[in-house]
């Protein structure tokens, strides 16, 4: 569901799309005067390449640079930034994206389970994730990793995460790892600017534009769950997923942290994350932990489950199980 159809966004005066059309010369000059005082700060913010582009783009970028942390924005402000980002994408790359700022649904806490017996290491999940979440093709960023394991061991730490051959290999099994969306997430505690946090529906998200890129969260994460944009991410326009979420698969920039969001742009609309949908063996289970009739609750009740590095007390919402 698009945010524009949301109740929050139905205030005509606050509608960003209308407002965006009014960014004229006066607005630009106002912005330019402020810019003179600040010098190259916006240039350094690392958005896009080349000169400042059109007046319209400059004004949009100016407002983007000074926007607040996502959590402090009113629904109207969230709507405005989402519209600005849509317009910026149109101006810069001629991409027609639809961005949402959909809030978590009440009474939902997402959980994930991974069937170690079923996974055969095809990595369809990885490909689907890269496509869905607009991950950088240049540095080959991937949120999910599959480890090929020999029998007799049960920790990805000793598996092979870089295998490149026909699967499944006899006498081997496969374990997928990604962000575990810990209840006690060490990464959110580490962040000096509260640019990463756990949403009420259990998803650990990053406000990309608020992140200062210090990478303390990477150091704090015991699961290799976070990815940094070392270079400006590149996604060919024809491959880009246009249906985006502010906290999810919208385009990131260099110097920002990102991570798996349980496909927030899908899961908050009642759809399954791309990895779950793509899995050809049905090894991935996703659902609402607060719904007693959900598949994830069935797994937790009827299967023997375990979690990775349980001794760290991070309380991941990601379980492994064996058929």
């Amino acid at each position: 569901m698009d945010c524009r159809k949301n109740k929050d966004c139905l205030k005509p005066k606050e509608n960003g799309r209308l407002k965006a059309k009014q960014y004229g010369r006066r607005e630009f000059l106002k912005g330019a005067a402020k810019a003179a005082a600040l010098g190259g700060a916006t240039m350094l913010s690392g958005c896009g390449t080349g000169l400042l582009g059109s007046n319209d783009e400059f004004s949009l970028r100016w407002k983007e640079y000074f926007k607040k942390n996502y959590r402090l924005m009113t629904p109207a402000e969230k709507d405005e930034t989402v519209r600005r980002l849509e317009r910026l994408a149109k101006i810069r790359t001629d991409a027609d994206i639809q961005m949402s700022a959909k809030a978590p649904i009440e009474g939902v806490l997402f959980g994930y389970a991974f069937n170690v017996t079923r996974c055969e290491g095809y990595m369809e999940c990885v490909a689907a994730c890269v496509k869905e979440n607009n991950l950088d093709r240049k540095s080959n960023t991937q949120y999910i990793r599959i480890f090929e394991m020999e029998h007799g061991e049960m920790s990805p730490e000793v598996g092979d995460g870089k295998y490149f051959h026909e699967v499944p290999v006899e006498d081997h099994f496969y374990m997928g790892v990604q962000c575990y969306h810990c209840q006690n997430a060490p990464c959110t505690k580490a962040c000096p600017v509260k640019a990463t946090w756990k949403e009420p529906d259990g998803i650990v998200v990053v406000d990309y534009d608020w992140c200062i890129g210090c990478r303390y969260c990477i150091a704090a994460c015991p699961y290799y769950g976070r990815r940094f944009n070392w270079n400006e991410p590149q996604v060919p326009l024809e491959e880009m997923t246009k249906k985006q979420h502010y906290l999810g698969n919208r385009m990131r920039h260099k110097g920002q942290m990102e991570k798996c969001t349980f496909c927030v742009q899908r899961s908050r609309e009642g759809r399954l994350p791309a990895c779950v949908e793509a899995c050809p063996t049905g090894a991935r289970v996703f659902g609402n932990l607060l719904d007693p009739k959900s598949e994830i609750r069935f797994v937790l009740k009827h299967k023997k489950v375990f979690r990775f590095k349980e001794e760290l007390g991070t309380d991941p919402k990601f379980w492994y199980f064996i058929d």
């Binding site: 700060a41 600017v193 200062i212 890129g213 990478r215 303390y216 110097g255």
Partner: peptide
């Protein structure tokens, strides 16, 4: 820092200073 231009996010008042947690 990956985003030096955003260093102002650290300044209490105009930014968010995650003290004493971080």
């Amino acid at each position: 820092m990956g985003g030096p231009a955003k260093a102002w996010h650290l300044i209490p008042g105009i930014g968010i200073f995650n003290w004493p947690t971080s």
